[in-house]
Computed example of a mutant assay.
Amino acid sequence: MKPTIFITRKIDDQIVEKIKETCEVDMWPEEEIPVPRSVLEEKVKYIDGLFCLLTETIDKSLLEKAENLKVVSNMAVGYNNIDIQTAKEKGITVTNTPGVLTQTTADLTFALLMATARRLVEGSSYLRDGEWKTWSPMQLTGQDIHGATLGIIGMGRIGEALAKRALGFDMNVIYHNRSRKTEAEEKYGITYVNMDQLLKESDFVCVLTPYTKETHDLISEKELSLMKDTAILINTARGGIVNEEALYKALKDRRIWAAGLDVFQEEPVPLDHPILSLPNVVTLPHIGSASIKTRLKMADVATDNLIKSLKNETPKYVVI
């Protein structure tokens, strides 16, 4: 008898057919609308495997309803949406999809940095709204990227890929991480510094650290106060790492120059969120890994993790 799995969002037909070769598949039919919590609570009672996204909260109360669940395959690098401790206690394997989205997310991070520094979104709106009347010397002037200092918080795979891109713009790259990455230092010519030094010296501060209890509100009022008034903050990691109230105040008071955000504490971000009213913020709807090729690859890796776990084989990417 085939194991039964539930997929929490409509995914590509080719991926579904691959899973059907070894599993009975039940899938939430919507692509843009997350599965309701009540539906997920009912489905988890009988399934052997769960294929989920970061939009689903796989917490203790949900996992305690799961009688047969053997694996939670998360189609994401981060897994802060899953109660790892409860899963471990229940003997449930948790997997994720690192590696496959590294280059795509680094591309988006650098693109967001450039768009924010050179006010691309603001400039496009300026033209479309009919405000462009003539060329003037200081019209929509932004910050230079070439030769600037880039501070990267979190030197993992994506951090290294971002550093590589920055070298092409002759940027001075400094970084802070839980531990030094001497191999990356030698490979890319980057420099390890403490957090305060990074914040004080950087023209661009890019947040790429995982979201954990320790990194919650890692960037708040104190940290923002250390940054240059010409500095730009970029966050493509997780919203909870940056205190949005403190960031709003810093941007509004021009204590920092601008911010580029792909992630928010609450997603989708409410349209009445004050940070959306600021002209010096470029906002994106959490699309760091959103290339066609990468998203399909993520789904494929999540599928392999799921199937191997159900076959009692060791998947490629195991969290626990």
Rank of each mutant, 00 (worst) to 15 (best):
V282Y: 07
L284K: 11
K213Q: 11
L276A: 03
E214S: 04
I256D: 07
N312G: 01
L284Q: 13
S179A: 13
K311C: 00
K187V: 12
V263P: 04
V282G: 02
T236G: 02
G288V: 12
D196E: 15
L261K: 03
G288I: 12
T209W: 00
L276T: 14
T209H: 04
R295G: 04
I320R: 09
K252G: 03
I232V: 14
I307R: 08
I275T: 12
P274Y: 08
V282R: 09
Y188A: 03
G288N: 08
F264V: 06
T303E: 07
E214R: 11
V263A: 03
P315V: 15
H273C: 01
T191F: 05
T294H: 12
N235S: 04
Y211I: 12
Y188S: 04
R178H: 14
M195F: 15
P210L: 06
A184M: 02
Q197Y: 07
V319N: 00
N305P: 01
I241C: 03
R295F: 05
A231L: 00
I292S: 04
D217Q: 13
R238Q: 08
P268E: 07
G189N: 10
K249G: 01
E221T: 15
T283S: 13
G240T: 14
A259G: 02
Q265Y: 12
L276F: 09
N194K: 13
L208Y: 05
R295P: 00
S202K: 13
A231N: 06
N305W: 09
D229F: 00
E186D: 10
G240N: 11
K222N: 11
E313H: 08
R255D: 09
D253G: 02
L198Q: 09
H273R: 08
L218F: 13
S277G: 02
K308A: 01
A290G: 05
S202R: 15
H273W: 06
M195N: 06
M195W: 05
R180G: 08
K222S: 08
H286P: 04
D304H: 15
L271Q: 14
L218P: 05
S202N: 10
N280I: 11
V282I: 14
A259E: 06
A259R: 10
L276E: 03
A250Q: 12
K187I: 12
K316H: 07
G288H: 09
Y317L: 00
C206T: 15
L261I: 13
P210S: 07
D253Y: 11
I287K: 05
L233C: 00
D217C: 01
Q197W: 07
K252M: 09
K311W: 06
M195A: 06
L218E: 10
K297W: 06
A302Y: 02
K222Y: 10
H286S: 02
L208S: 00
D262M: 05
R238S: 04
S220N: 15
T294N: 13
K293E: 14
T191V: 14
K187M: 05
P285C: 01
Q197C: 03
H273D: 12
D272Q: 14
N305Q: 06
I234G: 03
S220R: 13
Q197V: 15
R180N: 10
V207N: 01
I307D: 00
T236E: 03
E266W: 01
E223F: 04
G288Y: 07
P285Y: 06
I190D: 04
A250H: 13
